[in-house]
Design a protein around this nucleic acid. Structure first.
Lengths: 149, 149
DNA sequence: CCCCTAGATGCAAATGATTTGCAATTGCAT
DNA sequence: ATGCAATTGCAAATCATTTGCATCTAGGGG
């Protein structure tokens, strides 16, 4: 399903004269295979599951590299660094479960109005934003209820 | 100006049977004296400027303590832990300058509508949120312009 | 006002995530 | 196939934060 996405990104990189290494392709594939935000340890483990045995420092360096090239995005969630693929200029926020720490994308964003309000009320020039919603995912709501049934 | 705020908080703590120590009062005073979000080093330095010479580990422990007692709030901004006073149940977001890292409070929040949209579109139960706006503060816009005049 | 004790603090060492220097390796243009 | 700049592995360094333990202190009871 996501092979196409990764291949497109890889082609973009090649077009820029960048090298395609197992770490780079591997991390893109890992991130392309899920909707979740992943932390560094999860990425490291997923790589070896996929047969890509790279060093931790390579994972860090590659995540940096991909971020700087705007291919992935790094977010800090609950004190943890998490990463996701940036597909075709999408604008997505995340719903983060306070119990199981799963994340799901959510495609509505109130920023357009917000930006106008800030410009009207202040002299601050808004350029970017982050928005995260914390609560309970469907699974954890069910579990919680069944605990007390 | 903020002496009243701090005294009110201190009284709240006393009412709960908590001890008032120099570190606790000092940190509340430091945070009450500014609109900015402060990081740990800034708080540590401000304390000594105010004549409160406590250990770094005490600063960390006290910040934890005050957070757990809902008197201050901890946010992670640009990879840094920052703290602010929680006054009278206000609901405030922050405008964060990408250049000088100054922060200013902003009192509009689009969450009420957002919450309804999430409930309508998903099975996620939204409880809390974080929203931060990044851009350039008035000062840095001016400086930037004068660089190119 | 002094004493007592739970809780707070100082200090130094431990931790855990991330970064870095350097030598060895590898992708890919020629 | 060859050469070189860029990438990687490894181990050590770094940085913020946490922790164990001995000492100290805020503030309630006498």
């Amino acid at each position: 399903m996501s092979g196409k996405t990764v291949q497109a990104i890889v082609n973009t990189l090649k077009g820029r004269g960048e090298k395609i290494t197992p770490a780079r392709k591997g991390i893109l594939e890992v991130l392309a295979s899920t909707d979740q935000l992943l932390n560094v340890a999860e990425i490291y483990e997923a790589l070896r599951t996929n047969g890509v045995f790279v060093n931790y420092s390579t994972v860090y360096r590659t995540l940096d590299y991909l971020s700087k090239n705007n291919l992935i995005e790094k977010l800090v969630v609950t004190g943890e660094n998490k990463y996701k693929l940036l597909k075709h200029r999408e604008h997505i926020h995340h719903l983060i479960c306070k119990k199981c720490h799963s994340t799901q994308p959510f495609d509505y964003c109130p920023y357009d109005d917000l930006k106008d309000i800030i410009k009207a009320k202040t002299n601050f020039l808004p350029l970017e934003h982050r928005l995260e919603i914390y609560g309970y995912c469907e699974e954890c709501q069910k579990k919680h209820n069944s605990n007390y049934k």
